[in-house]
Design a protein around this nucleic acid. Structure first.
Length: 438
RNA sequence: CGGGCAGUAGCGCAGCCUGGUAGCGCAUCAGUCUGGGGGACUGAGGGUCGUGGGUUCGAAUCCCGCCUGCCCGACCA
């Protein structure tokens, strides 16, 4: 995109309502604008990030055989009456009536709806297991929305649901999803630590929160350094092999990790001192097994091989997609602005024409822009160099290609890496190769 | 939902106490100079002072109601 043709309204000053870094930077970098408390409009650059995160999530869900669907935001209250949650859910649920006075609700989650879908379409044990997900807007009428997009009322979430014939199958689905999550978060450029979470009335050990480390995180975390050392994209765990999933899960759960609420000083003491890591974290995902909590009351059954009806075992698996935008920024920024991981940056590179109107720099910029296309944001404004440097740092493009009259005379440009700040002078071709190759 | 704070130009703020036709910085627009880390000069545009009522000759300013937003707490992906 050409910046002169884009709606990317950067702000030099911080709006008074933004307190934490990610909120401040999202407003300043022109990613979002608030519409009402906890409700945001996503501007072009912000939407690109949101979509990029969604795409990584989607690819990793697809990779474990989880199928994408898209369920509506508005749901009939009757479905929720069947599970008993219509009355159990408090004022956090946004309830509305249609013109016929029928009760509807803006979905805060989709267990009832997905259970209903399976109930309508799955009749035999041969059709299980199934795993389905969607990426959809949710609404929870939080009493006190805050921290920008991190704790909004309207939020974009990936939620997945698994249906298995028995507990052993549900365990496999759970572990498979957990492995997908480790890969997903690594691809998003953040360190996510799975922490044992409260299982409530369900019991068991199949509930984990995924917490990414950020100094401004809402809860304190304690974990074994082992979590930071594993390269999930290279690890030899095959999600289709139960024995691999077993090995994976054992490794995961053998390492200590807990939030401050569940911190166990005795267990912590057993972790070698040089492997203890403490910090703060933000919850960006949650997976849990809940058995027949919905399938049973809602009457989801399939015929077994002997003709007996089987009530499927379910689990659900969330990732806060819009929250991740804020969380990633919390985990990756400096005084100057955002530092986007390559995988989700709105633009891979910014092209900074330091002397707009100059024939030489202009020609080089146009060449770069033609080659990079949608990967690039071309700052073609008639602004001073300093303004362009500052905005590029603020917006956090992984690469900045600086085209100034000095270098341009010799066909050189300067390539700056946002993370780390190294700059090198290169030929146009070499700069392109670096940016596209990285 | 309890406690606190705040709504004045796109953003950040002053003016309010002590009522008298609305101001500063940045941003925007035009022009000139400039040109590698938010530049300079000249000129210009932009405001139902959140909203409804009250007091008054006169209200951004005083009084009452309402709405909205922010912070702390309890709650949460």
């Amino acid at each position: 995109m050409r910046l002169t043709r884009s709606l990317i309204p950067t702000l030099k000053e911080t709006p008074a309502e933004a307190q934490i870094a990610s909120h401040r930077l999202m407003l300043r970098a022109g990613l979002v604008r608030q519409t009402a408390a906890g409700i945001y409009a996503w501007l072009p650059a912000g939407l690109r990030v949101l979509r990029n995160i969604g795409q990584v999530v989607r690819e990793e869900q697809d990779a474990i055989g989880c199928q994408e669907v898209l369920m509506p935001t508005l749901q009939p209250a009757d479905l929720w009456r069947q599970s008993g949650r219509y009355d159990a859910y408090g004022p956090e649920m946004l309830r509305v009536k249609d013109r016929h006075e029928r009760d509807l609700l803006y979905g805060p989650t989709n267990e009832e709806m997905i259970t209903d879908l399976l109930r309508q379409s799955v009749k035999s044990y041969r059709e299980l297991p199934q795993m389905l997900y969607h990426i959809q807007w949710k609404f929870r009428d939080e009493v006190r929305p805050r921290f920008g997009v991190m704790r909004g009322r309207e939020f974009l979430m990936k939620d997945a649901y698994s249906f298995d014939l028995d507990y052993a199958g549900a365990v496999l689905s759970y572990r498979r999803m957990m492995l997908a999550y480790m890969r997903t978060f690594q691809r998003l450029g953040v360190k996510a630590i799975p922490m044992v979470a409260d299982t409530g009335p369900i019991g068991g050990d199949l509930s984990h929160e995924f917490i990414i480390l950020a100094p401004t995180g809402e809860s304190g975390v304690f974990f074994d350094a082992g979590f930071e050392e594993i390269d999930w994209l290279a690890a030899d765990f095959d999600a289709s092999k139960p024995e691999d999933l077993e090995r994976f899960f054992t490794q995961m759960t053998s390492l200590y990790a807990a939030t401050d609420e569940k911190h166990d000083a005795a267990a912590w003491a057993k972790v070698p001192a040089d492997r203890r890591r403490e910090g703060r974290g933000i919850e960006v995902g949650h997976i849990f097994y809940f058995g027949r909590k919905y399938s049973e009351p809602m009457g989801l059954t399939v015929a077994g091989p002997d003709g007996a009806q089987i009530i499927p075992e379910m689990g659900s698996y969330g990732i806060g997609v819009s929250r991740l935008v804020g969380a990633v920024i919390e985990a990756s920024h400096d005084e100057a602005g955002i530092i986007w991981p390559d995988s989700i940056a709105p633009f891979r590179a910014a092209i900074l024409n330091l002397k707009q109107g100059d024939a030489t720099t202009g020609a080089i910029c146009e060449t770069l822009y033609a080659k990079l296309g949608a990967n690039a944001l071309y700052d073609d404004r008639d602004e001073r160099a300093g303004v362009k440097f500052n905005d590029a740092d603020l917006m956090g493009h992984p690469w900045q290609i600086v085209v100034g009259p000095r270098g341009a005379a010799n066909g050189k440009v300067e390539l700056k890496r946002r993370a780390g700040g190294e700059r090198v002078e290169l030929s146009v071709e070499d700069a392109l190769a670096r940016v596209l190759g990285a």
